[in-house]
């Protein structure tokens, strides 16, 4: 069995099993906890509207904070949008998903995907440098932050090397790229990458609780 066969077969199956089990473990584990009762009387009805508003209000910092954290938000958006574009509109990636969902969709030319991936990778490195340079950020960073950065960046770097065919051996390179993605999937449920599920939950919860108490979310 070559490394590529391993990456496409057993490694992928194991990674997906850990990913699915881990995500459900975390989601059920948190949701099945005893919910905190809000004993106060609702100051206004329709707390859920506030919850939904909360999803969007927190998508951009409160105005007075913009000069301080705006750049961080922009870098974050570049990373997330880049990740989304490369993942969904890169032809090889689309075909990977098409194999599961059974239909194909429109994709972007390879050159565009490469450019987006390069920009995203640069943004990831800027984010890391910011984290290392800023004393406060460095102080509050733990292993999880660096591990999360690593497993996110590795697929981009290996993917770009594969796409530009800079490996000594393409087949092994492709296998390394796949394995780096499986590493991301395996780490996903157990670290800060879970924010991709929790951010919706936490923003809604915060928004709806504030709304119930008469706040603006």
């Amino acid at each position: 069995m070559t490394l590529l066969d391993f990456a496409r077969g057993p490694a992928m199956q194991i990674a997906i099993i850990i990913f699915v089990a881990g995500i459900l473990w975390r989601l059920v584990g948190v949701w099945a906890l005893r919910q905190k009762k809000d004993l106060s009387e609702a100051r206004q009805t329709g707390a859920w509207v506030g919850g939904l508003k909360g999803l969007f209000v927190h998508a951009w910092p409160y105005k007075p904070f913009v000069p301080k954290v705006g750049a961080q938000y922009i870098i974050g958006y570049i990373i997330h949008l880049g990740l989304f574009i490369v993942l969904i509109f890169g032809t090889p990636h689309m075909l990977f998903f098409a194999d599961i969902v059974g239909f194909t969709w429109w994709t972007l030319p390879g050159g565009v995907i490469t450019a987006v991936a390069v920009i995203t990778t640069l943004a990831l490195f800027v984010a890391l440098i910011k984290r290392l340079v800023n004393p406060v950020q460095r102080l509050i960073s733990n292993f999880d932050d660096y591990a999360t950065w690593f497993v996110t960046t590795a697929p981009f770097v290996t993917g770009l090397i594969t796409n530009m065919n800079m490996w000594p051996d393409y087949e092994t390179g492709l296998a390394i790229h796949l394995l780096s993605v499986w590493l991301l999937l395996i780490y996903f449920p157990f670290g800060k990458l879970m924010h991709s599920f929790w951010f919706v939950v936490s923003r809604y919860t915060t928004g709806s609780r504030f709304a119930r108490r008469g706040g603006m979310a």
Partner: peptide, 15 residues
């Protein structure tokens, strides 16, 4: 099976 195991693990940890 992985999904079922995940749900079960979650339930146990919640309990």
């Amino acid at each position: 099976a992985a999904a079922a195991a995940g749900v079960a693990l979650g339930a146990v940890s919640a309990v």
